[in-house]
Write a protein that binds this DNA or RNA. Structure first.
Lengths: 299, 299
DNA sequence: CTGTTAGCGCGTTCAG
DNA sequence: CTGAACGCGCTAACAG
């Protein structure tokens, strides 16, 4: 009930215009002035508490530093902004435990909806026990028919791609991938198998539990003889294969030590937060690392 | 003061254990049971309102679908989680107007700190008028000595890389980049110029306002004769150059129509949100597009 | 040790 | 049309 409270109260009224009530221009002016001199901005946390809606969307991905997920996040962010929502991304690195933590965080933040790409082994109980009655869409994954799911027609796509290779006349076609625990890859490998067996050919899998192992597998398995063609099930696997085949330009580059940069950034920020933003503003400039490869003419 | 309120009150007490106070096991049991049967989770929005701290970090980037920024976001997310913070990423696509909107959103969410890669033309007033007294770290950009900044030693790195090419004996070295309005690229181009003029050579810039224009520029400028060496100032520019030089493997791939996928995802989610999560759960499966290039043997 | 209370900033509702 | 009051769920402070 101080003067400022009174003025803040006025602020509300200007918003009442939306309800169709007319406001005297005189009042509107007064309010506008108050807003300006108080530097007033509504508090979304209070608004969320009072209104029971946080206008927040949760996103649970294995990681965001991956071309597919970062693009997805970009698009989700744009769509969310368009509707006045804000996005909170959380990553689980394919760990069920961390994923449960993520889902709980979202519940405590009272997110209004969640988009999740589940870690391997995710079950309906898993998700629903953390997030009962929460709007959920599974992206690029699938745990139960009870949860909406958006994903590529993985199986069919892989079948079509394999068929294309078969039509070229190749008969020895290997399917190369890692992480067989991940939904999309299982589906894709099935599609490949479908196409092969339909031609009376036996599928030839080169599959490893993760990408480092995949590289090793490829080197040993294919050391003597490569198949005529390869169906590679993911971007990362393709890069692995190209690396081995020498299909990647060896560019000499300046590498940004991004981990160190972000570490510096975060510690600077938290120092400000802890010290009340009063810390001496300094500039942290980090040396780049010249990574010499062949493109400059070096051997 | 209802029964449930009483029980919720009990919940607090279990947390008081952290303060070292002992709680009778009897009470602890009662509380634990209440938590379970109420499916209680603390409300972070209420907590934020009451405590005056949102435990939220804002991140303002040009975009997150970009390898540098998505990796940065990944690392920020990990660091933030470690300290109990949650991250809200917002993108501005190098638009000052959208950036101001982002900063305002963060203010209204009462973010406790902000990491920002500024759009070209960002000024101190710009940032401070939206975010007075807010802890801020500028990442990979710089608007004022009053704001902490973390960035690569761009100038020096470019100078070193250029010097490396000069040491190889190249004399005709062009510097290729787009978006000269962006801080890092201006710095890098200066570093290049430094190294060239230090050798008595005149810098040879091939610079365009954006990447489409850059591609066109390269094709016309270098149609007759390429320089002996190129210093390319960004990943995207490097991909442009490699595309023109034919240095990129033309892989036949299945393309995920990601824009359509995310559109479907968001509309499914918002439908659930609007209809009270009651919508019929359906599976939306989207066909992949077989993009035929040369790697399969097609001409 | 345990129960109660005030008030964070907002939106809704009800009196003037 | 305008002012005041209530309560969202929580935490801090205080009373039993």
């Amino acid at each position: 009930l101080t003067a400022s409270y009174v003025r803040l109260t006025r602020v509300r009224e200007s918003l009442e215009q939306r309800t169709g009530v007319t406001v005297r221009p005189e009042v509107a002016k007064r309010v506008a002035k108050a807003v300006l001199e108080l530097d007033y901005e509504p508090d979304e946390t209070a608004r969320a508490l009072r209104g029971g809606k946080s206008r927040t969307l949760g996103v649970v991905f294995p990681k965001v530093s991956n071309i597919f997920f970062s693009q997805a996040l970009q698009l989700i962010g744009e769509g969310a902004r368009r509707r006045g929502y804000t996005v909170v991304p959380l990553t689980h690195e394919d760990s069920l435990e961390q994923q449960n933590e993520d889902l709980l965080t979202l519940r405590r933040c009272r997110a209004e909806g969640v988009i999740v790409t589940g870690a391997p082994g995710t079950t309906l109980q898993n998700v629903r026990s953390a997030l009962p009655h929460m709007p959920i869409v599974a992206l690029d994954s699938f745990f139960s028919p009870e949860i909406e799911s958006v994903h590529l027609q993985n199986r069919q796509a892989a079948r079509a791609a394999t068929k294309h290779l078969l039509d070229h006349g190749y008969r020895s076609i290997a399917c190369v991938y890692a992480r067989p625990d991940i939904f999309s890859y299982r589906e894709r490998s099935s599609g490949y198998a479908d196409a092969m067996t339909a031609q009376g050919l036996s599928p030839q899998f080169l599959c490893a539990e993760d990408y480092p192992h995949l590289e090793a597998e490829i080197r040993t398995q294919f050391s003597t003889k490569w198949p005529e063609a390869l169906l590679v099930l993911s971007d990362v696997a393709a890069l692995t294969v190209l690396g081995i085949l020498g299909g990647l330009p060896a560019l000499t580059v300046v590498r940004q030590p991004i981990a160190r940069m972000m570490e510096a950034t975060l510690s600077a920020l938290f120092r400000q937060i802890d010290n009340g933003a009063a810390a001496g503003s300094q500039t942290i400039s980090i040396p780049g690392e010249l990574v010499i490869r062949q493109s400059c003419g070096c051997p």
